[in-house]
Design a protein around this nucleic acid. Structure first.
Lengths: 187, 187
DNA sequence: CGATACATTTACCAAATGGTAAAAAACTAC
DNA sequence: GTAGTTTTTTACCATTTGGTAAATGTATCG
């Protein structure tokens, strides 16, 4: 996933604006297992995944609850930090060695107030994250864990290969036991 | 909730921009039980609640699943229609007689591309909806139905008075039976 | 390759939840 | 106020899920 692909997939903007925006994408690399964002901090950067896979989890009474997976092209951010400049609930762990684009929130915010096209790009970015988040919420509310597991296999078959099942069970809101049962049923 | 309060609570913008935006708020009234938005349509308007209360529900195999409640100050919109101009999953039912502000999405989109301040207002609007949606998702993932019910009483005590318990049970992801059990336990 | 650690499956029982139906309570409309 | 409708509670049993622990399978590293 190139910088251009990422920017264009969100909203098409004129070349001058795009150049201003592109300047802020800095490529960084981290190893598998690296904790990129922490729940107890106000995070100053957001990221886009060029290559690799990550998860977000919340610490709840001595267990981790995974509530998001991200892969190539996805944005990594603590929404709370990004939007309200407060501590969030999300820890981000890289599940593979990752190549990322790093952007400073402060720089982005400055551009938003200076450039109409970039402001609209930022609006579209938030709107698209909103749609994705609502979809996750709906799927959780409307479908059973078993249905959502099947959906996951269908939509992202590689994810089951690349991610430990413990995290997938947690993501589905069930125990590893129950996930094993579901997997056994299907075959 | 006045138009000014609603606009200002999202993002402060200069008076000229605000005047342009305000022109688009049209007050409308509908009776209790009115279906404001439908899942099978591309909705062309969004609303803010001046007075009253509403719920969003999805039709799933001959049952309705409530996944959102809105009250004074909240925005009512089919995210899918607003963001992607596609049919959404949400039906909106007014649970009381409501006074609403209606805005045409097309007019808003035009303003977004013409006025930097309004574009940023639209960005903040999406960002704030994003935070709220993520919070609902997290709460669902992390807390039990019982905990979430207690939280609901604490945060919005009036809601339990104003909304039939069937909808609250559905919102919490449990049956009316289980909600009754929870309520019985608490006392 | 082998030893160790970690992840996953299976089995068992306990606890929580759903479904149906009937009783009680609350709300509507005349 | 009363009859009728709708909503909520309660009780029962069937089903699903969780928790613990042991067994199997898979990775990792010297």
């Amino acid at each position: 996933m190139s910088v251009d692909q990422i920017i264009d997939s969100i909203f098409l903007i004129p070349n001058e604006s795009k150049a201003l925006l592109k300047e802020n994408f800095v490529e960084v690399r981290y190893p598998k297992g690296h904790i990129l964002l922490r729940a107890d901090r106000i995070e100053k950067n957001i990221y886009f995944i060029q290559k690799g896979i990550a998860r977000a989890y919340a610490d709840v009474e001595d267990t981790e609850i995974t509530f998001w997976f991200g892969r190539e092209g996805d944005a990594i951010l603590s929404m709370r930090s990004y939007v309200e400049n407060k501590e969030g609930y999300d820890n981000i762990e890289l599940l593979e060695e990752c190549a990322l684009y790093e952007l400073k929130t402060a720089n982005l915010n400055k551009l938003f107030l200076e450039d109409l096209h970039i402001a609209n790009w930022g609006r579209r970015f938030a709107e698209q994250e909103l749609i994705k988040t609502e979809e996750r919420l709906l799927s959780r509310q409307v479908r059973t864990a078993s249905e959502r597991y099947k959906q996951l296999i269908k939509d992202h078959p590689d994810l089951i290969q690349r991610v430990p099942l413990v995290h997938i069970a947690s993501y589905l809101g069930i125990t590893r036991n129950s996930l094993s049962r579901i997997r056994a049923e299907i075959m």
